[in-house]
Simulated scan of single mutants.
Amino acid sequence: MANPWSGLPPVEVHCHGFGDVDFSDFTKVDLARLDAWCASEGVLSLPTMYLHREQLAEFEAFVHEYHRMRGEGLLPHVAGIALEGPLLASHGGTPASTVWAPSRHEWERLAALGPYGLTYTVLSPDAFSPASELHDEPAARDTGFDWLIPLLMAHGIRPALGHFTRADPLRSAEQVDEIVEMAWQSEWSGTGVRVVTDHLFNDMPLLIRHAFRSARARAERDAVIASYDLPGWTLDQMARIVGPVPAAIMRQAAAGRIGACINFDGEHVDLAIATRAVQLMGVENSMMMTDRCDSARLGGQDLHHRVDNALWYQQDGIVAAGSVPLARQMANAQSQGLSLEDVRTLAAGTAHRVFGLPVRSEARLPVA
């Protein structure tokens, strides 16, 4: 039987900026120009944005304009809009000013954008925990996941799980399972898979060294990876090996209840670890993501490179984004022994299925 996803265009699932365009400065984003850029690279995109509380009305206007243009056939390569935050327990590389706890009314306004193109919003399963940066915000006491998740589901918006605290990994993992169960028990107005993730292994408590970003770390890399015995990894041992949080995500993904994102730039996550993870979850449940930003500015903050890698860093030395495009990540995945068909699934097929994108499209995946 023919693979219905074969030949589809790759999808930039989680990306922050192409060329000199910072998607989070959405009041200045030229959507037609963005679509043309995507067409030139042969990809679809889900531009991912940060949101300041005082810009909520402007964001609503932006999503409505996106919907109008999309409806007129002007944006065939921009498959949806996504948010990173604002409900993040730890801001990580996200600008601190874009991390906040929406009130019920603000959540209702955000949820209402689902039918107009808001595809997912990254949120932290432990956002309401005592260790969360948001725990003492008044709005955090007025909401909870038992109210929020059904609201998002009813409007076709997926929670994207990420930005965990490290205070209580077991409880955070339980929250992952609880949110996934809530989502699959709720009334769903969207298509595709109901829950996705931010990038696996990043911004979460881990028991392993998942990346080797400096020259010194890379000198130790082969010995460390050998000690992990990656071929011996099994799903039922992941909590003991990598930690309860990534184990919960991987288990739910393998069951088809999460579309899990993972980065193949070799810098967010070691390529051997990323490859073994998608083998365990199933490539059909895994999506390649770039976290890409092409310019040295993101979400109102200046970024810089280090000599050791191609990641973007904030002033305080925290990783803010990646810079490796999807085509190079696809080549990285193939270099790890994944078949061309598996790589196409990671870069295109899973995203089309998870986000309910049409099988037929004007753009097509280039043949390697």
Rank of each mutant, 00 (worst) to 15 (best):
E12D: 10
C15W: 05
D22P: 01
D25Q: 01
A36Q: 10
S40Y: 07
G42V: 08
V43C: 06
L44G: 12
T48H: 00
M49P: 07
Y50L: 00
E54G: 06
Q55V: 00
L56Q: 10
G71E: 08
G71S: 07
G73P: 11
L75R: 01
I81H: 07
G85N: 02
S90A: 13
G92A: 04
G93S: 10
S97N: 10
A111Q: 10
L118T: 01
T119V: 14
D126W: 06
S129L: 07
A139R: 13
T143M: 13
D146T: 14
H155R: 03
T165Q: 05
P169G: 11
L170N: 14
S172I: 03
W184N: 09
E187Q: 13
E187I: 12
S189H: 12
R194E: 14
D198S: 12
M204C: 09
A211D: 09
A219T: 02
L230A: 05
D236W: 06
R240W: 11
P244C: 11
G266W: 10
E267Q: 15
V269A: 11
T275V: 04
M281V: 10
T290R: 13
R292D: 07
S295D: 13
R306F: 13
Q314N: 08
A331K: 01
S335G: 02
D342H: 09
R344E: 05
A347S: 15
T350N: 11
V367R: 12
V367T: 11
